[in-house]
Amino acid sequence: VEDRYGGVIVDDAMFDAEELLGGDPVAFARALDGSVETWRARGTRGVWLKVALERAAHVPVATSRGFVFHHAEKEYVMLTKWLPEDEASTIPANASHQVGVGAFVLDKETRRVLLVQELRGPAANRDLWKMPTGLLEAGEDVPIAAMREVMEETGIDTEFDTVIGCRHAHVGAFGKSDLFFCVGLVVKDGASREISIQPQEIAKAKWATMEEFLDNPHIEPGSHAWALHALCEKWANDEYAGIRANKLPLGFGRPGEVYTYVAHE
């Protein structure tokens, strides 16, 4: 399949000879060599080669011919090769960021906030009470992820209100950068306040006063967490509206909608 940048996207299953689909490296090598020669003659620039997990024997064949790893998922690995010899590669790098959310959950009836202690991870075993947090799943929007994390970790049903703030850092796992959205949620009308923790991830959870939330010895004054906590308090006191999330048409002649984050007017 040709891409929009003068390259090709190739699934290794496209080589439809029976011995190739069976994972025969020798047959795959012959087919790949012939294809690269054809692509080069046509002026193809970049080649994206998707190799399925069940044909992993094709990977060393491809790397021995100059293909390099780009990214991997559970069911495949993607390799790339830049063909022009007289110019630098313009193949884009793999995704550089992970995206996380922290859910500041306010019970408007009691003015209490939802806090958890994690069972595992860097926040565990430190007597650290914190807002529920987690990473976005592929294709998931920030508001949806925040509500999902709260439901999974505590069993509390919430509604999205606002994005309180965002932190951008370069300390993510495996060398990735990290975007973290602090989201303001409220308990749904009529929803239970009874907490049911996720035992695989959460050690404890509780409803706490705002004073307990703010009086956190692990939060250093002047730090990014300190600034976000201060904004949480202002939002809870109706002194700060945050950033609203509008779901708007994608546009450019394409179907679908996307969340667009803009300041409250």
Rank of each mutant, 00 (worst) to 15 (best):
S192L: 05
P143Q: 12
L49M: 00
P60W: 07
D86S: 14
I164W: 07
R167E: 13
W207N: 02
K247M: 03
G23K: 00
F69R: 11
L250G: 04
L179W: 11
G7L: 05
A169L: 14
L214P: 01
S177L: 03
M14Y: 04
P84Q: 07
H170R: 15
G46H: 01
V68E: 13
N216E: 08
S223T: 14
D215W: 15
H224P: 02
M210I: 13
E87T: 00
A146R: 04
G165K: 04
V26I: 06
Q198F: 09
P60V: 12
A230H: 14
R120T: 08
N246Q: 15
L49E: 04
G22P: 04
N94R: 12
E265K: 08
L115P: 14
M78L: 10
P199S: 13
E149W: 12
E153K: 11
L250Q: 11
V1Y: 08
I243F: 01
E109K: 11
E233M: 13
V10Y: 03
D189T: 10
V183F: 03
P132F: 13
P122F: 07
S35F: 14
G253P: 00
L228W: 07
A227P: 04
D215A: 10
V187N: 01
D161Q: 03
R45Y: 07
H218P: 09
G34E: 02
V10P: 05
D33N: 02
G253R: 13
P221N: 01
K74N: 11
G100I: 00
E37P: 13
I195C: 09
G222S: 07
P132W: 08
E37L: 03
G121H: 10
F174T: 04
K188Q: 10
E140T: 08
H224N: 10
H58C: 10
P143A: 13
E73W: 01
L21P: 08
A72N: 11
G34A: 09
V77S: 14
C166S: 01
V1L: 07
L135I: 10
E118K: 12
G256A: 05
L106W: 14
S223Y: 00
G34P: 06
E137P: 09
L185M: 09
K206F: 15
I91P: 15
W226I: 01
L32M: 06
E265F: 02
P84E: 05
E211Q: 11
K74F: 06
K176H: 15
P199K: 15
H170Y: 15
D189W: 14
L49G: 01
R254K: 05
C232H: 00
M151F: 14
F104V: 06
E257M: 12
A123P: 03
M131N: 07
V99C: 10
I91A: 08
A146L: 04
K74C: 05
N125W: 10
G190L: 02
H218R: 00
L136D: 06
G139E: 07
A41G: 10
E118S: 13
R193W: 00
V258S: 03
L79T: 13
F174S: 06
G46P: 05
K234I: 12
H70V: 08
P92M: 13
T44F: 07
F181M: 00
E2L: 15
S35E: 08
E137R: 11
